[in-house]
């Protein structure tokens, strides 16, 4: 039976705050709050026309990245689509450089050449930030291919939206990744809409974790509003890959509170539906756990929030004060080979 996409995702059994240390909860709280505050600021700045381009916010989906980074290995690789402001942040890049990229400044992570949809961080194994829906699916398998070729133990976490799964490249990639047993976890962030198109309007197959079945790829649904569930699923999938068993598919059920991008009147869904999800907010959930267990006090969490807001303000100041690229930068980073003879007249 297809799930009704417009109803809250079914909860996995909730571990009794189990298995995770207070430090992990604190980290989840801090990471998610940084993502949330950073992007709330992005939304404001965008509305104030401080920068241009597209601006796709991750707000509502933060538990996925928070739970993912505590479960994955230091050297594991990440690749994703264009809803990617939070990926460098959660991996440890400063909000300053992430913000500067949005502003198109030389101090940005891609020197202002990639913008909102193209965050890369080679040192932290973030392979982008890709604006072509689905393009990263094959790239992710290729990253895993290289690691396997060299006999490495890394796993690639290849993220995509529920819309991206309808691209043909998914099927080609799933097939080859399974045939060659590539160490890649395919992660569908099912926020139930691709722009204004709901999952149920794009296919008869709405249980997206079953999409690997024709290739014998194991898959399972995950509650994307709970860090614990994401952490557990990623840990299991990574272990599966690292043991040489080939790919694993996770459909992480989530929700974006904001529009697809900043120019989205959201006629395709109701306010009630959005509210329903906000009631399950992952940040509030982790806050509750921290307080209930007396792992943190209200005052401590408030102070954390204050510090994050301040850091975000500083990031904005840094971005606004950073230099814009000079015109000669146009000719840099197009070819690796030095002195490429561009046609200039």
């Amino acid at each position: 039976m297809p799930t009704k996409t417009a109803s809250p995702a079914k909860r996995n059994a909730r571990p009794a705050d189990g298995g995770h240390t207070p430090e992990t909860y604190r980290r989840w709280f801090k990471d998610m709050l940084l993502m949330r505050r950073f992007e709330e600021k992005c939304g404001q700045l965008y509305t104030m026309q401080k920068f241009g381009g597209f601006c796709h916010l991750y707000i509502g989906q933060e538990a996925i990245l928070a739970g993912m980074v505590t479960a994955m290995g230091q050297d594991d690789r990440i690749i994703t689509g264009y809803r990617d402001h939070c990926h460098p942040l959660v991996l440890g890049e400063t909000p300053h450089r992430v913000m500067a990229e949005l502003y198109g400044r030389t101090t940005g992570t891609s020197k202002g050449k990639g913008g909102s949809m193209h965050y890369f961080d080679k040192g932290r194994h973030l392979f982008g930030g890709h604006g072509i829906v689905g393009g990263q699916i094959g790239l992710g398998a290729g990253i895993a291919f290289a690691d396997k070729y060299r006999g490495g133990k890394q796993v690639t976490l290849c993220m995509m939206g529920d819309g991206a799964v309808r691209q043909g490249i998914l099927h080609e990639t799933f097939n080859m990744a399974m045939t060659w047993k590539l160490p890649v976890v395919f992660i569908i962030e099912n926020n139930q809409y691709a722009m204004g198109t709901s999952v149920e309007r794009t296919s008869n197959v709405r249980e997206l974790y079953t999409l690997g079945e024709s290739y014998d790829m194991p898959g399972e649904p995950v509650d994307g509003m709970r860090c614990e569930a994401v952490h557990a699923a990623i840990a299991k999938a990574c272990a599966h890959c690292r043991a040489g068993n080939g790919p694993y598919l996770l459909e992480i059920k989530t929700y974006r509170y904001r529009g697809h991008s900043m120019s989205d009147p959201q006629k395709y869904r109701t306010k009630e539906e959005v509210e329903q999800y906000k009631q399950q907010d992952p940040i509030e959930d982790v806050r509750g756990t921290l307080l209930r267990n007396k792992w943190a006090t209200e005052a401590e969490l408030e102070a954390m929030d204050e510090a994050i807001r301040k850091e975000v303000e500083e990031a904005v100041k840094f971005a606004e004060e950073s230099p814009l690229p000079e015109a000669k930068e146009l000719w840099e980073d197009v070819y690796k080979t030095p002195d490429y003879p561009f046609i200039k007249d």
Partner: peptide, 20 residues
């Protein structure tokens, strides 16, 4: 490879990004 030009081209590009 199977007859999957888009897919294996992408795997090639990803592998090149990762050092091959």
């Amino acid at each position: 490879t199977p007859i999957s030009e888009l897919g294996f081209a992408a795997i090639g590009v990803g592998a090149a990004m990762n050092g091959l």
